[in-house]
């Protein structure tokens, strides 16, 4: 039943997936197993996205399926059992003045299914909030997203603020999104530019020493 579940979810079969979820819950299966299957299915979705088989619509829809399954499972959960071990922490956000979040959400999704503990600060994030989040999480990796030309300066200011706060030397900063490229990376004094969400994962892997 578990193998079917993973495939139904990864193949985005809404009705059959929800029917099977109900069946598993009625059969008093441990809901934690369903959660584990969710994770497996999402990892497959992530692989298919990376492989160019899935695109944004599939990511959005898989997110919706996950939400629906969780709505069914949550009432059956006792206490949240031990969380899966993560590789490390990554903070991401779209810089001040910019509200594009479609790319940011994909980056979050891909980092998550590839084993990272991701804190997304959302969009239009003021410089101080980035600084605070880097202090609070002690995350060694920061991802800045931006789609607009005014975001060039916002990125630069964010990097400078981290420098001022004395945090810069301990952090690797990657940038990406819309009008960004390596020119902007130089301009903003970030460490790397990534052209898509897979690049965000490989950069994180490189910095965390994951092979």
């Amino acid at each position: 039943m578990s193998g079917d579940f993973v495939n139904l979810m990864a193949d985005l079969k809404e009705e059959e997936l929800l029917a099977l979820t109900k069946k598993r819950l009625e059969a008093k299966e441990d809901p934690q197993k369903i959660l584990d299957d969710n994770t497996k299915a999402m990892a497959i979705v992530g692989k298919r996205f990376a492989g160019g088989e899935y695109f944004l619509p599939e990511l959005v829809f898989s997110g919706e399926l996950l939400k629906q399954v969780m709505a069914l499972v949550t009432p059956h959960l006792k206490q949240s059992s031990a969380k899966a071990k993560k590789i490390g922490k990554v903070v991401i956000g779209t810089v001040a003045g910019d509200i594009h979040d479609i790319g940011l959400n994909i980056v979050e999704f891909m980092l998550d299914v590839n084993g990272y503990d991701v804190t997304s600060l959302g969009v239009d994030v003021p410089v101080e909030k980035f600084v605070q989040a880097m202090k609070d999480t002690k995350s060694p990796v920061l991802g800045l997203s931006g789609f607009l030309t005014p975001a060039f300066d916002a990125m630069k200011e964010t990097v400078e603020a981290l420098e001022k706060a004395g945090l810069r030397k301990d952090i690797k900063i990657m940038i990406g999104g819309g009008q960004m490229d390596d020119e902007v990376r130089k301009y903003a004094k970030a460490d790397a530019f990534g052209k898509d969400a897979m690049a965000a994962v490989s950069l994180a892997n490189k910095w965390f020493g994951v092979k």
Binding site: T149, F152, Q179, M180, D181, E183, V184, Y187
Partner: peptide
């Protein structure tokens, strides 16, 4: 012509 070049070049 890339916007980044127009802006920073």
């Amino acid at each position: 012509v890339p916007t980044s070049l127009v802006m920073t070049g």
